[in-house]
Simulated scan of single mutants.
Amino acid sequence: MLDERKLSILYAIINSYILCAEPVGSRTISKQYDLGVSSATIRNEMSDLEGLGYLVKAHSSSGRIPSDKAYRHYVNYLLNELFLEKALEKTEISILLDKDFDAIESLIMNSAKVLSDITKYTALAIVSRQTDIVLKKLQLVDLTPVTLVLLIVYDNEDVKHHTMYLDEPIKSSSINILNNYINSKLVGKKLSEVPDKIDELISKGEGEYSKYLLYLKNIFVSQIDEMNQTQIIYDGVANIFNYPEYKDIDKAREFVDFLEAREGLADAIMDDDKEGLKISIGEENKLELLTELSIVSSIYGLSDNIHGRIGIIGPKRMDYSAVIMTILSLTEALESLSNRE
Protein backbone atom coordinates (compact mmCIF):
# COMPACT_ATOMS: atom_id res chain seq x y z
CA MET A 1 0.00 0.00 0.00
CA LEU A 2 1.49 3.33 -1.02
CA ASP A 3 1.23 6.23 1.40
CA GLU A 4 0.04 9.66 0.30
CA ARG A 5 3.54 11.07 -0.26
CA LYS A 6 4.64 8.18 -2.44
CA LEU A 7 1.41 8.44 -4.45
CA SER A 8 1.91 12.19 -4.98
CA ILE A 9 5.47 11.65 -6.19
CA LEU A 10 4.47 8.71 -8.40
CA TYR A 11 1.62 10.64 -10.06
CA ALA A 12 3.92 13.64 -10.55
CA ILE A 13 6.47 11.43 -12.29
CA ILE A 14 3.80 9.89 -14.53
CA ASN A 15 2.36 13.29 -15.46
CA SER A 16 5.83 14.64 -16.22
CA TYR A 17 6.72 11.63 -18.36
CA ILE A 18 3.39 11.87 -20.26
CA LEU A 19 4.22 15.46 -21.17
CA CYS A 20 7.92 15.16 -21.98
CA ALA A 21 8.74 11.51 -22.72
CA GLU A 22 12.02 12.02 -20.85
CA PRO A 23 13.25 10.09 -17.78
CA VAL A 24 12.26 12.03 -14.68
CA GLY A 25 14.68 12.96 -11.89
CA SER A 26 14.09 14.23 -8.36
CA ARG A 27 15.13 17.79 -9.29
CA THR A 28 12.50 17.95 -12.02
CA ILE A 29 9.77 16.88 -9.62
CA SER A 30 11.01 19.26 -6.92
CA LYS A 31 10.99 22.24 -9.32
CA GLN A 32 7.78 21.53 -11.23
CA TYR A 33 5.55 20.23 -8.45
CA ASP A 34 4.98 21.80 -5.05
CA LEU A 35 5.00 18.64 -2.95
CA GLY A 36 6.32 20.28 0.21
CA VAL A 37 9.37 18.00 0.50
CA SER A 38 13.04 18.34 -0.42
CA SER A 39 14.72 16.98 -3.53
CA ALA A 40 16.62 14.50 -1.33
CA THR A 41 13.37 13.17 0.14
CA ILE A 42 11.91 12.82 -3.34
CA ARG A 43 15.02 10.94 -4.42
CA ASN A 44 14.66 8.51 -1.52
CA GLU A 45 10.98 7.98 -2.24
CA MET A 46 11.76 7.37 -5.92
CA SER A 47 14.25 4.71 -4.88
CA ASP A 48 11.55 3.05 -2.76
CA LEU A 49 9.07 3.22 -5.65
CA GLU A 50 11.65 1.59 -7.90
CA GLY A 51 12.11 -1.18 -5.36
CA LEU A 52 8.34 -1.69 -5.28
CA GLY A 53 8.24 -2.07 -9.08
CA TYR A 54 6.52 1.24 -9.90
CA LEU A 55 9.54 2.92 -11.52
CA VAL A 56 12.26 1.75 -13.89
CA LYS A 57 15.70 3.33 -14.09
CA ALA A 58 16.59 4.61 -17.56
CA HIS A 59 19.76 3.16 -19.07
CA SER A 60 21.63 6.39 -19.73
CA SER A 61 20.12 8.68 -17.13
CA SER A 62 19.67 9.04 -13.41
CA GLY A 63 15.97 9.63 -14.04
CA ARG A 64 13.19 7.07 -13.83
CA ILE A 65 10.29 6.14 -16.05
CA PRO A 66 6.96 4.60 -14.96
CA SER A 67 6.50 0.85 -15.20
CA ASP A 68 3.40 -0.95 -16.46
CA LYS A 69 2.49 -1.44 -12.80
CA ALA A 70 2.64 2.32 -12.26
CA TYR A 71 0.41 3.05 -15.25
CA ARG A 72 -2.12 0.46 -14.08
CA HIS A 73 -2.23 2.03 -10.60
CA TYR A 74 -2.60 5.48 -12.17
CA VAL A 75 -5.40 4.39 -14.52
CA ASN A 76 -7.34 2.71 -11.72
CA TYR A 77 -7.09 5.93 -9.73
CA LEU A 78 -8.30 7.93 -12.73
CA LEU A 79 -11.27 5.64 -13.29
CA ASN A 80 -12.41 6.18 -9.71
CA GLU A 81 -12.08 9.94 -10.08
CA LEU A 82 -13.27 10.48 -13.65
CA PHE A 83 -16.71 9.03 -13.20
CA LEU A 84 -17.35 11.79 -10.70
CA GLU A 85 -16.55 14.41 -13.32
CA LYS A 86 -18.54 15.70 -16.27
CA ALA A 87 -17.73 14.06 -19.58
CA LEU A 88 -17.20 16.01 -22.78
CA GLU A 89 -20.40 17.46 -24.15
CA LYS A 90 -22.13 14.74 -26.15
CA THR A 91 -23.71 17.32 -28.43
CA GLU A 92 -20.27 18.65 -29.37
CA ILE A 93 -19.06 15.23 -30.50
CA SER A 94 -22.41 14.43 -32.13
CA ILE A 95 -22.00 17.43 -34.42
CA LEU A 96 -18.60 16.11 -35.55
CA LEU A 97 -19.94 12.59 -36.06
CA ASP A 98 -23.03 13.73 -37.95
CA LYS A 99 -21.00 15.19 -40.81
CA ASP A 100 -21.64 13.21 -44.02
CA PHE A 101 -23.46 10.51 -42.05
CA ASP A 102 -25.60 8.52 -44.49
CA ALA A 103 -25.25 4.92 -43.23
CA ILE A 104 -24.17 2.96 -40.19
CA GLU A 105 -20.86 2.05 -41.84
CA SER A 106 -20.01 5.67 -42.59
CA LEU A 107 -20.96 6.62 -39.03
CA ILE A 108 -18.43 4.12 -37.64
CA MET A 109 -15.72 5.27 -40.04
CA ASN A 110 -16.37 8.89 -39.15
CA SER A 111 -16.27 7.99 -35.44
CA ALA A 112 -12.74 6.61 -35.85
CA LYS A 113 -11.68 9.78 -37.66
CA VAL A 114 -13.17 12.05 -34.99
CA LEU A 115 -11.52 10.03 -32.23
CA SER A 116 -8.14 10.21 -33.96
CA ASP A 117 -8.48 13.95 -34.61
CA ILE A 118 -9.37 14.71 -30.99
CA THR A 119 -6.86 12.45 -29.22
CA LYS A 120 -4.00 12.64 -31.79
CA TYR A 121 -3.50 8.90 -31.43
CA THR A 122 -4.27 6.02 -33.81
CA ALA A 123 -7.97 5.19 -33.61
CA LEU A 124 -9.54 1.86 -34.46
CA ALA A 125 -13.02 0.43 -34.62
CA ILE A 126 -13.83 -3.27 -34.53
CA VAL A 127 -17.11 -4.05 -36.32
CA SER A 128 -18.99 -7.34 -35.83
CA ARG A 129 -22.39 -8.27 -37.17
CA GLN A 130 -24.68 -10.69 -35.37
CA THR A 131 -26.18 -13.68 -37.16
CA ASP A 132 -29.10 -14.18 -34.77
CA ILE A 133 -31.27 -11.73 -36.70
CA VAL A 134 -34.58 -13.23 -37.83
CA LEU A 135 -35.95 -13.53 -41.36
CA LYS A 136 -39.07 -11.36 -41.70
CA LYS A 137 -39.82 -11.74 -45.42
CA LEU A 138 -38.38 -13.34 -48.56
CA GLN A 139 -39.21 -12.29 -52.11
CA LEU A 140 -37.98 -13.74 -55.40
CA VAL A 141 -38.22 -11.36 -58.35
CA ASP A 142 -37.53 -12.43 -61.94
CA LEU A 143 -35.24 -10.25 -64.04
CA THR A 144 -35.05 -12.76 -66.88
CA PRO A 145 -36.32 -16.34 -67.15
CA VAL A 146 -32.95 -17.56 -65.82
CA THR A 147 -32.10 -14.67 -63.51
CA LEU A 148 -33.81 -14.05 -60.15
CA VAL A 149 -33.18 -11.57 -57.37
CA LEU A 150 -33.77 -12.69 -53.80
CA LEU A 151 -34.80 -9.91 -51.44
CA ILE A 152 -34.26 -10.70 -47.74
CA VAL A 153 -35.92 -8.55 -45.10
CA TYR A 154 -34.74 -9.08 -41.50
CA ASP A 155 -36.56 -8.26 -38.30
CA ASN A 156 -34.32 -5.23 -37.80
CA GLU A 157 -35.62 -3.88 -41.15
CA ASP A 158 -32.26 -4.49 -42.81
CA VAL A 159 -32.74 -5.49 -46.46
CA LYS A 160 -30.30 -7.56 -48.51
CA HIS A 161 -30.53 -8.61 -52.14
CA HIS A 162 -28.75 -11.40 -53.99
CA THR A 163 -28.83 -12.45 -57.64
CA MET A 164 -29.54 -16.09 -58.55
CA TYR A 165 -28.45 -17.42 -61.96
CA LEU A 166 -30.47 -20.53 -62.84
CA ASP A 167 -29.46 -23.43 -65.06
CA GLU A 168 -32.85 -23.42 -66.76
CA PRO A 169 -35.77 -20.97 -67.12
CA ILE A 170 -38.48 -20.68 -64.49
CA LYS A 171 -42.10 -19.64 -65.11
CA SER A 172 -43.61 -16.62 -63.33
CA SER A 173 -46.36 -18.82 -61.90
CA SER A 174 -43.72 -21.11 -60.40
CA ILE A 175 -41.99 -18.10 -58.79
CA ASN A 176 -45.21 -17.17 -57.00
CA ILE A 177 -45.61 -20.71 -55.68
CA LEU A 178 -41.95 -20.81 -54.65
CA ASN A 179 -42.27 -17.46 -52.82
CA ASN A 180 -45.19 -18.76 -50.79
CA TYR A 181 -43.31 -21.95 -50.01
CA ILE A 182 -40.04 -20.41 -48.80
CA ASN A 183 -41.86 -17.80 -46.72
CA SER A 184 -43.95 -20.48 -45.02
CA LYS A 185 -40.86 -22.58 -44.24
CA LEU A 186 -38.12 -20.03 -43.50
CA VAL A 187 -39.68 -16.81 -42.20
CA GLY A 188 -39.28 -16.56 -38.43
CA LYS A 189 -35.99 -18.50 -38.44
CA LYS A 190 -32.72 -16.99 -37.26
CA LEU A 191 -30.23 -16.45 -40.06
CA SER A 192 -27.82 -18.89 -38.43
CA GLU A 193 -30.53 -21.60 -38.49
CA VAL A 194 -31.54 -21.24 -42.14
CA PRO A 195 -28.93 -23.49 -43.87
CA ASP A 196 -29.78 -26.42 -41.57
CA LYS A 197 -33.50 -25.83 -42.11
CA ILE A 198 -32.99 -25.90 -45.87
CA ASP A 199 -31.05 -29.19 -45.57
CA GLU A 200 -33.99 -30.58 -43.61
CA LEU A 201 -36.45 -29.53 -46.32
CA ILE A 202 -34.27 -31.04 -49.05
CA SER A 203 -33.96 -34.32 -47.11
CA LYS A 204 -37.74 -34.62 -47.10
CA GLY A 205 -37.57 -35.06 -50.87
CA GLU A 206 -39.77 -32.19 -51.99
CA GLY A 207 -38.17 -32.51 -55.43
CA GLU A 208 -39.72 -29.60 -57.30
CA TYR A 209 -38.25 -27.16 -54.80
CA SER A 210 -34.92 -28.85 -54.04
CA LYS A 211 -32.86 -27.33 -56.84
CA TYR A 212 -34.03 -23.84 -55.87
CA LEU A 213 -33.46 -24.52 -52.18
CA LEU A 214 -29.81 -25.30 -52.98
CA TYR A 215 -29.45 -21.87 -54.58
CA LEU A 216 -30.99 -20.31 -51.48
CA LYS A 217 -28.74 -22.27 -49.12
CA ASN A 218 -25.61 -21.00 -50.89
CA ILE A 219 -26.88 -17.44 -50.55
CA PHE A 220 -27.58 -17.75 -46.83
CA VAL A 221 -24.23 -19.47 -46.14
CA SER A 222 -22.52 -16.60 -47.94
CA GLN A 223 -24.57 -14.10 -45.91
CA ILE A 224 -23.52 -15.76 -42.63
CA ASP A 225 -19.86 -15.81 -43.68
CA GLU A 226 -20.04 -12.13 -44.55
CA MET A 227 -21.57 -11.23 -41.20
CA ASN A 228 -19.09 -13.36 -39.28
CA GLN A 229 -16.14 -11.51 -40.76
CA THR A 230 -14.92 -8.96 -38.25
CA GLN A 231 -14.00 -5.66 -39.86
CA ILE A 232 -11.24 -3.41 -38.54
CA ILE A 233 -11.28 0.30 -39.35
CA TYR A 234 -8.29 2.55 -38.68
CA ASP A 235 -7.70 6.26 -38.75
CA GLY A 236 -4.67 8.36 -37.90
CA VAL A 237 -2.10 5.58 -38.31
CA ALA A 238 0.55 8.20 -39.12
CA ASN A 239 -0.04 9.85 -35.73
CA ILE A 240 2.35 7.34 -34.18
CA PHE A 241 5.26 9.08 -35.92
CA ASN A 242 4.63 12.19 -33.79
CA TYR A 243 5.78 10.46 -30.61
CA PRO A 244 9.44 10.12 -29.54
CA GLU A 245 9.00 6.42 -28.85
CA TYR A 246 8.60 5.90 -32.61
CA LYS A 247 11.30 8.14 -33.99
CA ASP A 248 13.10 4.91 -34.87
CA ILE A 249 11.82 4.44 -38.41
CA ASP A 250 12.15 0.63 -38.28
CA LYS A 251 10.09 0.46 -35.11
CA ALA A 252 7.45 2.77 -36.59
CA ARG A 253 7.31 0.77 -39.82
CA GLU A 254 6.88 -2.45 -37.82
CA PHE A 255 3.89 -0.88 -36.05
CA VAL A 256 2.29 0.26 -39.32
CA ASP A 257 2.87 -3.12 -40.99
CA PHE A 258 1.27 -4.83 -38.00
CA LEU A 259 -1.85 -2.64 -38.21
CA GLU A 260 -2.18 -3.18 -41.94
CA ALA A 261 -1.86 -6.95 -41.55
CA ARG A 262 -4.67 -6.89 -38.94
CA GLU A 263 -3.72 -10.44 -37.92
CA GLY A 264 -4.87 -11.30 -34.41
CA LEU A 265 -5.73 -7.73 -33.45
CA ALA A 266 -9.51 -8.12 -33.42
CA ASP A 267 -9.25 -11.21 -31.19
CA ALA A 268 -6.83 -9.43 -28.85
CA ILE A 269 -9.20 -6.50 -28.40
CA MET A 270 -12.56 -8.31 -28.50
CA ASP A 271 -11.61 -11.19 -26.18
CA ASP A 272 -13.89 -9.95 -23.38
CA ASP A 273 -17.04 -8.32 -24.72
CA LYS A 274 -18.52 -8.05 -21.23
CA GLU A 275 -16.00 -5.41 -20.20
CA GLY A 276 -17.44 -2.06 -21.30
CA LEU A 277 -14.42 0.21 -20.93
CA LYS A 278 -11.25 -1.80 -21.45
CA ILE A 279 -7.71 -0.53 -20.83
CA SER A 280 -4.76 -2.80 -21.67
CA ILE A 281 -1.34 -1.50 -20.68
CA GLY A 282 1.95 -2.82 -22.02
CA GLU A 283 2.48 -6.43 -20.96
CA GLU A 284 -1.27 -6.80 -20.33
CA ASN A 285 -1.68 -7.00 -24.11
CA LYS A 286 -1.51 -10.55 -25.44
CA LEU A 287 0.30 -9.75 -28.67
CA GLU A 288 4.04 -9.16 -28.41
CA LEU A 289 4.00 -6.18 -30.77
CA LEU A 290 1.59 -4.40 -28.41
CA THR A 291 3.62 -4.78 -25.20
CA GLU A 292 5.09 -1.29 -25.57
CA LEU A 293 1.68 0.25 -26.20
CA SER A 294 -1.62 0.82 -24.45
CA ILE A 295 -5.09 0.23 -25.88
CA VAL A 296 -8.15 2.03 -24.52
CA SER A 297 -11.48 0.94 -25.98
CA SER A 298 -15.17 0.84 -25.25
CA ILE A 299 -18.00 -1.41 -26.42
CA TYR A 300 -20.65 0.07 -28.68
CA GLY A 301 -23.90 -1.48 -29.85
CA LEU A 302 -25.90 -0.17 -32.79
CA SER A 303 -29.54 -0.65 -33.63
CA ASP A 304 -29.12 -2.96 -36.62
CA ASN A 305 -27.25 -5.78 -34.87
CA ILE A 306 -23.84 -4.25 -35.40
CA HIS A 307 -21.59 -4.14 -32.38
CA GLY A 308 -17.91 -3.93 -31.56
CA ARG A 309 -15.28 -1.78 -29.89
CA ILE A 310 -13.91 1.63 -30.66
CA GLY A 311 -10.77 3.06 -29.12
CA ILE A 312 -7.18 4.12 -29.57
CA ILE A 313 -3.70 2.59 -29.65
CA GLY A 314 -0.84 4.73 -28.39
CA PRO A 315 2.25 4.97 -26.21
CA LYS A 316 1.95 3.78 -22.61
CA ARG A 317 2.55 7.37 -21.49
CA MET A 318 -0.66 8.55 -23.20
CA ASP A 319 -2.94 11.12 -21.58
CA TYR A 320 -5.31 8.53 -20.10
CA SER A 321 -7.64 11.07 -18.55
CA ALA A 322 -8.39 12.85 -21.82
CA VAL A 323 -8.54 9.61 -23.82
CA ILE A 324 -10.97 7.86 -21.46
CA MET A 325 -13.38 10.78 -21.30
CA THR A 326 -13.30 11.28 -25.08
CA ILE A 327 -13.98 7.61 -25.80
CA LEU A 328 -16.86 7.42 -23.32
CA SER A 329 -18.43 10.57 -24.77
CA LEU A 330 -17.95 9.41 -28.34
CA THR A 331 -19.46 5.98 -27.65
CA GLU A 332 -22.55 7.55 -26.15
CA ALA A 333 -22.92 9.94 -29.08
CA LEU A 334 -22.34 7.13 -31.60
CA GLU A 335 -25.13 5.01 -30.13
CA SER A 336 -27.50 7.98 -29.92
CA LEU A 337 -26.98 8.84 -33.59
CA SER A 338 -27.42 5.24 -34.73
CA ASN A 339 -30.70 4.95 -32.81
CA ARG A 340 -31.95 8.06 -34.61
CA GLU A 341 -31.95 6.24 -37.91
Rank of each mutant, 00 (worst) to 15 (best):
Y246S: 12
D272H: 08
S39I: 01
P23V: 00
N180T: 13
R340G: 04
L88P: 15
P23L: 00
N305K: 11
Y246N: 08
Y17L: 05
E283I: 10
H161T: 12
L302K: 00
E260W: 07
N339Y: 14
L302N: 01
D273S: 11
L138P: 02
P195E: 00
G276C: 03
S222V: 04
E292M: 07
N183W: 02
E92A: 15
L96H: 02
S203W: 01
H73L: 11
D271E: 10
S173V: 14
V127T: 02
E341M: 10
H161Y: 05
I14C: 02
I42D: 01
N339C: 11
T119M: 00
Y74G: 01
R317F: 11
K204N: 07
K6T: 01
D271H: 15
A87M: 09
K204M: 12
Q130R: 14
C20K: 08
S329K: 00
L293E: 12
I118Y: 10
L52V: 01
C20N: 13
E275D: 12
S67P: 15
L150W: 03
L201W: 00
N339T: 13
Y154D: 08
K247G: 15
L259P: 09
M109D: 09
L191R: 10
N183H: 03
Q229V: 13
A268D: 14
A333Y: 03
F241C: 11
T291G: 00
I42T: 08
I175Y: 01
I133T: 11
S298Q: 13
L88V: 09
Y181C: 06
L151Q: 15
I95R: 12
F220H: 08
L302A: 04
I198D: 11
L35Q: 05
I126G: 03
K286P: 05
E92Q: 13
K247H: 15
L79K: 09
L35N: 04
G236V: 14
S106N: 14
E193C: 02
D68H: 06
I13T: 15
T163R: 13
E260F: 13
S116W: 00
A125F: 05
S172E: 14
M325V: 13
I108M: 04
Y212D: 06
K211R: 14
V141L: 11
K120P: 01
G301I: 07
R317V: 07
I126E: 01
I295F: 04
I152F: 05
I313K: 07
E245F: 10
V146K: 14
F258I: 04
E341P: 03
G53V: 08
G53W: 05
E193Y: 03
L265C: 04
V153C: 05
D196I: 13
A266C: 00
S8T: 01
I299A: 09
I65Y: 08
E206T: 14
V256M: 07
G51K: 04
D117I: 06
N179E: 04
H161L: 03
R317W: 08
G282W: 00
K6W: 03
A70R: 00
P145A: 10
L124K: 11
G314V: 04
I177K: 10
Y71D: 07
T28Q: 12
F83M: 10
H162A: 09
C20G: 12
V37G: 04
L96N: 05
V221C: 03
Y209T: 08
K286S: 10
D142M: 09
A268Q: 14
D267K: 10
K86S: 13
A123K: 08
E283L: 08
F83R: 08
